[in-house]
Design a protein around this nucleic acid. Structure first.
Lengths: 291, 291
DNA sequence: ATAAAAATGAAAATAATGTTTCAGAATTTG
DNA sequence: CAAATTCTGAAACATTATTTTCATTTTTAT
């Protein structure tokens, strides 16, 4: 029985991805990376760009059901032609193979919108100041989150812990929070997450911390947690999504960007710490170095 | 005096059209006809399509200021790439008040790219099947993450816990994992997160779970965790970012979208559970109902 | 740990593409 | 209208791309 010949190259790659080998995946990713242009050069170029050998390219072309590389390339050109001739339909669909009413597309729309609106409102000066603050080794950093945002706090903590010393994650049980406040010194930084519905406990913690001379950095939503009044800096993410819950994607984006900025500012120290961590992992053999 | 090298092939053809010969004009028109795809085949094909000889193609390429046909073709590919790379991303600054080299803009670029590429690769069928699977109340859901992805696992867990019963978060200490496997039944679902560097323990857990007849849903990266071989369904997120770490933004996006889909599928049950949770919160006065 | 199987890329073999030459055809010029 | 000029493509040639082969490395299974 003949196999369907009307699949796009991208679709074929996706459907066979699991059966591809390491080098082939590398190649597949390079092709998808800048699809379909990256696949239109000569086999030599394509191989070089993906850092694999030309035989690998041929083998994958065959695995995908083509007679050879030129046939794969011809398929790419055909697709391209089809795409270019009706740019209207396809351009707005994120997941091109799902209808535009599919939750994947609706959610993607919402998230992209949130990103745009949030970014437009961020003050780079505030961003830079926060990065600077979190890079200051004379200050202890305390991180706290609420019911939903706990995971975000945890994410920030895990990364900051590698970047620098003196980072604490405030446990999720609010009863223990006064103990943490005991250990906060004037000049320390408290990074708090508070998204609607805003939590009483976070507000109280912010108040207590502020009273100790702790600088509060707040991640909240477009409406703003009541804790904002104690915050020296706050980031307001757009969090709306077609769901019963709010989206944390944009907040995570800001967190990662801050991490990246701090990492750059403290690179002299961070470099060594990461190296050391690598060595420790190598010793415990907890991770596989390669695929 | 050097001639401007930044003209498109189409522009060059138009500006030199008068000086082209009959056969060359025939060729030029064929190229413009279905631009730029028609120019991307081999010189033989291009010549045939335009009903001219291959030397004519070479001669025209040179007349247009290229060293040879391959150079003309490379120019076409470059143009195409510039056209296809989404005009919104590249030509719009995200954080308009920060320079385009600011980490905010560079990170936003990377994340948007990751989103687009990931979405293009997601198979809606797989997405739907996973949503269905996680909505099945006859199956227990177990969620597990690694060192970095633990937060993501936690995020999914927190939400799923509200949506439905029978959801477990596998603790982060890998030593205890066999205990969890004890409690997994055939038909259960294990949602695992494994991003590079892939973790041995996750692989082993996946193997053990698979042996019990547990269905594995895997969230991994573009290269694919080795645990993929035990997975019935996997999601490959693009995770590259201008940072020493990978970005989890896109993975979180997929998680949230899945949550939203599951919530819709189980809305009859979820509605009641959310209402009940509201009431519980009201009783404990843990949250402020209004801003 | 060890053997078997699979994957990989260097290099050779093959195939195709791209370029040049050149003689005849078409066009222009006087 | 003929001579000079230009254009054109067949064919030879040069270059580059593609495929195959095979030894080595890596992975998997036992």
């Amino acid at each position: 029985m003949a196999k369907a010949q009307n699949l796009t190259v991208a679709e074929r790659i996706r459907s066979k991805f699991e059966r591809l080998t390491r080098a082939e995946r590398q190649l597949a990713n390079a092709i998808l990376e800048n699809y379909p242009v990256s696949g239109l050069g000569s086999i030599t170029t394509v191989a070089e760009v993906s850092s694999v050998s030309t035989p690998t390219v041929v083998r994958m072309a065959k695995k995908l059901g083509f007679k050879g590389f030129p046939q794969l390339q011809a398929a790419l050109r055909d697709e391209l032609e089809a795409t270019l001739s009706n740019p209207i339909t396809k351009h707005n669909l994120w997941a091109e193979n799902a209808p535009d009413t599919h939750i994947l597309n609706r959610f993607a729309d919402a998230v992209m919108d949130n990103m745009r609106q949030t970014l437009r409102q961020i003050d780079p000066e505030v961003f830079n100041a926060v990065a600077q603050l979190l890079s200051d080794r004379n200050r202890q950093i305390h991180v706290v989150g609420g019911r939903i945002t706990r995971s975000l706090a945890d994410y920030l903590f895990t990364h900051m812990q590698v970047i620098r010393s003196g980072v604490t994650l405030v446990a999720s049980n609010a009863n223990t929070w006064p103990h943490y406040v005991l250990n906060m010194n004037a000049g320390d930084v408290l990074v708090a997450f508070d998204i609607r519905r805003y939590e009483h406990d976070i507000l109280r913690l912010a108040e207590m911390a502020a009273a100790q001379g702790v600088t509060l950095v707040l991640f909240t939503d477009q409406w703003g947690s009541p804790a904002a009044k104690y915050a020296k800096y706050s980031f307001h993410s757009r969090i709306e999504a077609p769901s019963a819950w709010d989206s944390s994607v944009v907040t995570l984006f800001i967190i990662e960007t801050i991490i990246s900025a701090v990492e750059t500012l403290t690179w002299d120290e961070t470099k060594g710490r990461m190296k050391k961590l690598e060595d420790l992992f190598d010793q415990t053999k907890m991770f596989r170095k390669f695929i």
